[in-house]
């Protein structure tokens, strides 16, 4: 069997006392599109950030093509350049044009000459349908266009995997499609991707493997047909119901009277108790560190 591009083994992550990942073991095979779903606060972003080593896990291992990315003799920058993250908030470099956004890392990380890097940038912009925006600054682009530039920026590095953290969550509904289209094209081209998303349509259509996470553990995983059509785990069922209920509620064409009947349905639309609890946690931490902070200590 081929080595997985990314593999996590009993991955654990805690912020102080707050254990956010409680032993995540998963695999991403070459050319696979793995979609991670789950309620807010379940640790999806943290999982991706650990893979990219933006957060340092407190336990377990992450293997990239079989190599432990936390090993002493591994240059994390070389790993990151092959496993690039696309963020919910795009994070384009605001002071650089679309073209320069793409060429910067090519030049600095891969040592590509400027002319060549800019050629590559134009090629990638063409791929996401933004050839005419090469000289535009992020502030002059719509959210959807910014996210497409961000994807082009990641692709230009020719990574072995892409990590998407809710790439469409910050977008107006009418802009989501253009970004999903680009992602679909990438998936079809055989790009290895891990996608955290609430876009169930995308998950159903493109995922090779779906992982449902809740409260820091993987509750259920499998092929999309199984998860979406026939979920076994109780929490998965509740989550999917709630998501579908939200989608319905957002549909402007849906007649109003149906609203009430759905809300009254069993177990739909309730909110997770987790969020409230973690908010209290944060306040407590603040008070404790407050005094030290006051004296300029860390």
């Amino acid at each position: 069997m081929a080595t997985p591009i990314i593999e996590t083994k009993d991955l654990r992550m805690a912020f102080g006392d707050n254990e956010v990942l409680k032993g995540i073991s998963m695999q991403v095979m070459p050319s696979q599109c793995v979609v991670v779903i789950g309620p807010s606060g379940s640790g999806k972003s943290t999982l991706l950030r650990c893979m990219n080593h933006l957060n340092e896990p407190t336990g377990g291992t992450i293997l990239f093509e079989g190599h432990d990315i936390a090993a002493e003799d591994i240059d994390i920058n070389l790993i990151r350049a092959q496993m690039i993250m696309v963020f919910q908030s795009f994070n384009l470099f605001m002071h650089l044009t679309a073209k320069k956004n793409i060429s910067l890392a090519l030049m600095k990380v891969k040592g590509v000459e400027q002319a060549e890097a800019e050629d590559m940038a134009l090629k990638m912009l063409a791929k996401v349908g933004l050839s005419d925006k090469a000289d535009a600054y992020p502030g002059q682009l719509s959210g959807g266009q910014q996210q497409r530039v961000a994807i082009a920026r990641a692709m230009a590095m020719q990574p072995k995997a892409l990590l998407f953290d809710e790439p469409t969550s910050a977008l107006d509904p009418e802009l989501i499609g253009e970004v999903l289209d680009v992602m679909k094209r990438l998936a079809l081209e055989g790009m290895t991707m891990v996608v955290v998303t609430h876009e169930m349509g995308f998950a159903r259509e493109m995922a090779d493997h779906v992982i449902f996470m809740d409260q820091g553990v993987i509750c259920e995983q499998g092929p999309p047909e199984e998860i979406f059509v026939n979920p076994k785990n109780e929490r998965t069922k509740v989550f999917l119901k709630r998501i579908l209920c939200q989608v319905d509620a957002m549909d402007p064409l849906k007649p109003n009277y149906e609203d009430t009947s759905l809300e009254n349905g069993n177990g739909t639309c309730e909110t997770a108790p987790v969020a409230e609890q973690s908010a209290k946690e944060v306040v407590k931490n603040d008070a404790r560190t407050g005094l030290k902070r006051w004296f300029g200590l860390r």
Partner: peptide, 27 residues
Amino acid sequence: IPKGQMEASRSMGMTYNQSMFHVIIPQ
């Protein structure tokens, strides 16, 4: 500067100093 700028830069493999110099400080 929003911390996403540094994260995006690090995520592509740029070092802390490169990110500081080319992304954060100019802004």
